[in-house]
């Protein structure tokens, strides 16, 4: 009896060796595919802008984004201007993802007839159990358009006087699936300012973030604290720190952003340093960002197939 049971035991053992269980095969695969590479954290933000500010998100390489940004007039204007709807400023622009880490854009603003351009470079990516933050550099230039302003006698208005430069470091962390925050130390340099009492170079610290309330809706906010020149008026009017509060709504093809802000300007020099309205007086502007993305250069996996349908 003992012999038979030993034989049976061996028989079963031999079959186990003969055919490993699928679980064994799966752990064999696990071992074979194990890597030390830490995974990048994705979707820190839904879009390339929080509200006015850029986020650490870049467009994918080969993607073109057509953006229409709208800021209406003051809600506090009341019925006279249909709560601001009558006085809108707009920026239309094109952004493009050159590589995974480089994104560029150009745009035209109705406010000040300003043309602007920017580049955004991804420097660091947050990783799961690794690098704690994502870091990008944003560099922008904006040129005022329109007629030359009245200059003091003996002074000429050169093209360079129209220019403003922005440098920002975007430092973001996705704390959880829902919460992401971004710090934005910023330097804006205006080539021409009204008074020598102030500095042409202005430092500020911005903070922004989003909180997802569902898979497709997130609440967003951003605020800039101006470190110097906070008392510098713009065209003789007192300026305030910029604060915006809004929502990201994701639809099939794009993210729709709706918000209230006290900044009517859309370029960095306008919203960070030349915001002349304040929340406390109800001088809010309703605004929205819409974007439509087009795949210009398709990912390499799809290059041999039929052309991508963009519509």
């Amino acid at each position: 009896m003992r012999c038979i049971s030993t034989a049976l035991l061996l028989l079963t053992c031999s079959f186990a060796g003969y055919g490993q269980s699928t679980d064994d095969l799966m752990s064999e695969l696990d071992n074979a595919t194990k890597t030390d590479k830490k995974e990048e954290v994705t979707a820190t933000f839904k879009a390339t802008r929080i509200i006015n500010s850029s986020t650490v998100e870049n467009l994918a390489a080969g993607v073109l984004d057509f953006r229409i940004l709208h800021r209406f007039g003051r809600v506090s204007d009341g019925t006279e201007n249909f709560f601001g709807i009558d006085n809108a400023t707009t920026r239309i622009g094109l952004d493009y993802g050159v590589t995974k880490w480089l994104m560029v854009g150009i745009g035209h603003n109705t406010l000040g007839k300003t043309n602007d351009g920017f580049a955004k470079v991804k420097l660091l990516s947050q990783k799961v159990d690794g690098t704690p933050v994502s870091v990008s550099w944003f560099g922008g230039i904006a040129a005022l358009g329109g007629k030359a302003p009245q200059m003091p006698p003996g002074m000429e208005y050169y093209f360079t006087h129209r220019l403003a430069y922005t440098n920002q470091l975007l430092i973001a962390r996705k704390f959880s699936k829902k919460l992401s925050l971004q710090l934005m130390p910023s330097v804006v340099h205006l080539n021409l300012i009204d008074s020598s009492k102030f500095s042409n170079t202005m430092f500020s610290m911005g903070i922004g973030g989003r909180y997802k309330v569902s898979n497709r809706v997130a609440v967003t906010a951003e605020y800039y604290y101006r470190i110097n020149n906070a008392d510098m008026p713009f065209s003789g009017v007192t300026t305030y720190n910029s604060f915006s509060l809004g929502a990201d709504i994701e639809t099939g093809g794009h993210v729709f952003q709706l918000f209230f802000t006290n900044s009517q300007g859309i370029t960095e020099r306008s919203f960070i340093n030349q915001t002349t309205d304040t929340w406390t007086d109800g001088q809010l502007h309703f605004g929205f960002n819409i974007s439509r993305v087009f795949t210009v250069v398709r990912p390499k996996e799809f290059r041999n197939n039929a052309p991508a349908k963009n519509w």
Binding site: Q20, S21, L25, A43, G253, H254, V293, P299, F302
Partner: peptide
């Protein structure tokens, strides 16, 4: 990743979901 054991036909597949590439980045997101 996949393993096939020829003698008994046992087969396992492992598919990293994030490695799916779409024509449009937004779809992938």
């Amino acid at each position: 990743a996949a393993i096939l054991s020829a003698a008994d036909g046992k087969l396992v597949f492992q598919v990293p979901v994030r490695s799916f590439k779409f024509q449009r980045d937004l779809m992938q997101q």
